[in-house]
């Protein structure tokens, strides 16, 4: 009986991490599911669904050599794998402005109240050290309609934060 686990790895980025980790998992009899790897502020980060016959301890022991050799912290959670049930986003929101604390909380708080279910979010700090800018891209499902989200955005984006909202019309052919 196999189980699904969510494996999280974090460490200093360098080339070849995905190849080494996935080889170790394959050699250990694992199957991979969905994954998201991103480089965040020079750090390697990945969250990876792993299907494995054994228990969490067995998976942890299997990963210890490769994680240690590549300087990665690891974290493993037993999960339910709801594969083949993707939720489709119907709205995309882009937010940017001079970086300061509180942008995400204010914007996403207003959007959540207006019915947004965030399915995908990515943000970057760009610009220069002297003048950092914050850029955030969100895709989600508008449970209460896109107009409700637009109204919410109009209220919270009055002072120097730019926000654009557009609907995603997915073509099924």
């Amino acid at each position: 009986m196999s189980h699904w686990y969510m494996l999280t790895l974090v460490g200093k980025d360098r080339p070849g991490i995905v190849a080494h980790v996935s080889a170790a998992l394959f050699d250990g009899g694992c199957n991979l599911g969905e994954a998201s790897m991103m480089r965040l502020g020079g750090n390697f980060t990945i969250m990876l669904m792993v299907e494995y016959e054994g228990n969490k301890k067995g998976l942890d022991d299997m990963l210890e050599p490769v994680a240690d050799s590549m300087g990665l912290h690891r974290h493993i959670d037993r999960i339910d794998a709801e594969l083949h049930h993707h939720l489709e986003p119907d709205v995309r929101i882009t937010v940017y402005g001079a970086d300061r604390a509180g942008i995400v909380a204010r914007i996403t708080g207003a959007l959540a109240e207006a019915g947004l279910h965030i399915l995908d979010m990515e943000s970057s700090v760009a610009g220069t050290e002297q003048k950092p800018i914050y850029i955030m891209q969100i895709e989600g499902h508008a449970a209460e309609g896109i107009e409700a989200l637009q109204s919410a955005l109009d209220i919270v984006t009055s002072d120097g934060i730019e926000a654009q909202l557009e609907s995603i019309e997915t073509l099924i052919g």
């Binding site: 083949h84 049930h85 993707h86 489709e88 995603i168 019309e169 997915t170 073509l171 099924i172 052919g173």
Partner: peptide
């Protein structure tokens, strides 16, 4: 750019 899915490729866009 636009989002697409396909009856011949279930559960992915």
């Amino acid at each position: 750019v636009g989002r697409e899915g396909c009856m011949s490729v279930p559960d992915y866009t």
